[in-house]
Design a protein around this nucleic acid. Structure first.
Length: 370
DNA sequence: GAGTCGTGGGG
DNA sequence: TCCCCAAGACT
């Protein structure tokens, strides 16, 4: 089994420096079994890879390593810079925990045991196993989405993986090649990503076809067995882009707990039943910032889907009337020149609002001149 | 232990 | 207001 997979991986695996640059030695080679890699870049990559596809995270990793190329750089960095480097990747607590962990570990070398890595904020069993097998070639199993799917099919598991965690970990551990754990774990994930894919797996190309229970059963794509998904709630959010008399715009930093923690945003909140959206915006700004505004024209309306809710943002330009803004429901608030908004980390939906705002202000300038 | 936490790609 | 999913962790 192991040799079949490794032989497949030697030919078809994702072992290109352009694909997984963190997996290569400083002189550009895939490491030999007795060679260690510096764990810093691998740590950053593995955290970025949590619930995130390789090709999506790679440009973020490249940029991160240009700016925060060492542990010392990360320790010294401000949180705003860390979140800016993460902007667009999602699950922003990953970035804040990474920053926090770096500061905790600043004095000592990075951990080299499973227990020590598991104690690091943001590191669970899969990420710890991936770091240790990747960097130090330690025989520690992993159980990510790829491996879970491969194992579910291989064993023809009729139980949803969430309910059979223990079995899946045992399978992963039993399969792991004790001599080449680094290559084997990479091969297992590459198999899931390239061959044993969620929708239409390429069983004809699979080195484990003859061992696969799901293939034998005739319907590999029916595995892993799914839990029934629950309906996702939908809400309308009124958002105010508040401008003062000198043309600055009001933004606030969200609390660290909860959705989009630590990021900046234009203030607003949920529309209540029967409420006009203009009234929602005026009310939310009164409740959360203690200011009075005149709600003006709509800037944009946009739908945005999160993991477990869908929102429609209805964004209106507002004129500030009175009241010094107070962070009653946020970490801090401030007035910012529109051209300085790029210095603050915003969620994706807000980035779209900013682009529209900049366009709008530019058009305003032109029409006033003519 | 079920919910919470983002975003972009692809069917 | 499609759907599912991704190198999961934390509460």
């Amino acid at each position: 089994m192991r040799q079949q997979l490794l032989a497949w991986w030697e030919v078809h695996g994702r072992k290109d420096i352009a694909i997984k640059p963190w997996m290569f030695t400083t002189d550009g080679r895939w490491p030999e079994p007795n060679e260690d890699l510096s764990p810093y870049g691998i740590w950053i990559a593995e955290v970025m890879l949590q619930q995130t596809q390789l090709r999506v995270m790679r440009p973020y990793w490249e940029q991160w390593m240009l700016v925060l190329s060492t542990m010392q750089h990360l320790v010294a960095a401000e949180e705003r810079q860390v979140l800016l480097l993460w902007q667009g990747l999602g699950y922003y607590s990953r970035a804040r925990r990474l920053h926090q962990a770096a500061r905790q570990l600043a004095a000592s070398p990075l951990p080299s045991s499973l227990e020590a890595w598991l104690a690091v904020p943001g590191i669970g069993r899969t990420t710890a196993g991936s770091i240790l097998s990747s960097a130090l070639n330690r025989p520690v199993p992993i159980l990510d989405g790829n491996v879970r799917r491969v194992l579910a099919r291989l064993h023809g598991c009729l139980e949803p993986p969430q309910r059979a965690q223990a079995s899946f970990w045992q399978w992963s551990e039993a399969l792991l090649d004790p001599l080449r754990p680094r290559d084997f774990n990479q091969a297992l994930m590459d198999l899931g990503a390239l061959v044993c894919t969620p929708r239409t797996p390429s069983c004809q190309l699979c080195p484990w076809q003859s061992s696969c229970a799901a293939y034998a059963a005739g319907e590999p794509s029916h595995f892993p067995v799914q839990d029934a998904s629950k309906p996702i709630p939908f809400q309308v959010i009124g958002v105010g882009v508040v401008l003062n008399e000198v043309g600055e715009v009001l933004i606030d930093q969200r609390l660290n707990e909860g959705l989009l923690g630590g990021l900046w945003e234009f203030p607003g909140g949920k529309q209540e039943p029967g409420e006009a959206i203009e009234a929602t915006i005026a009310r939310e700004l009164r409740e959360e910032l203690a200011i009075e505004v005149q709600v003006g024209e709509q800037l944009i309306a946009l739908d945005h889907a999160y993991s477990h809710k869908k929102l429609r943002f209805v964004v209106h330009l507002c004129r500030w009337i009175s009241g010094e803004p107070k962070p009653l429901a946020s970490q801090q608030v401030c007035w910012v020149k529109p051209e300085d908004l790029s210095g603050y980390p915003f969620p994706a939906a807000n980035v779209r609002m900013i682009a529209t705002l900049i366009d709008h202000l530019r058009a305003d300038m032109l029409s006033q001149r003519s």
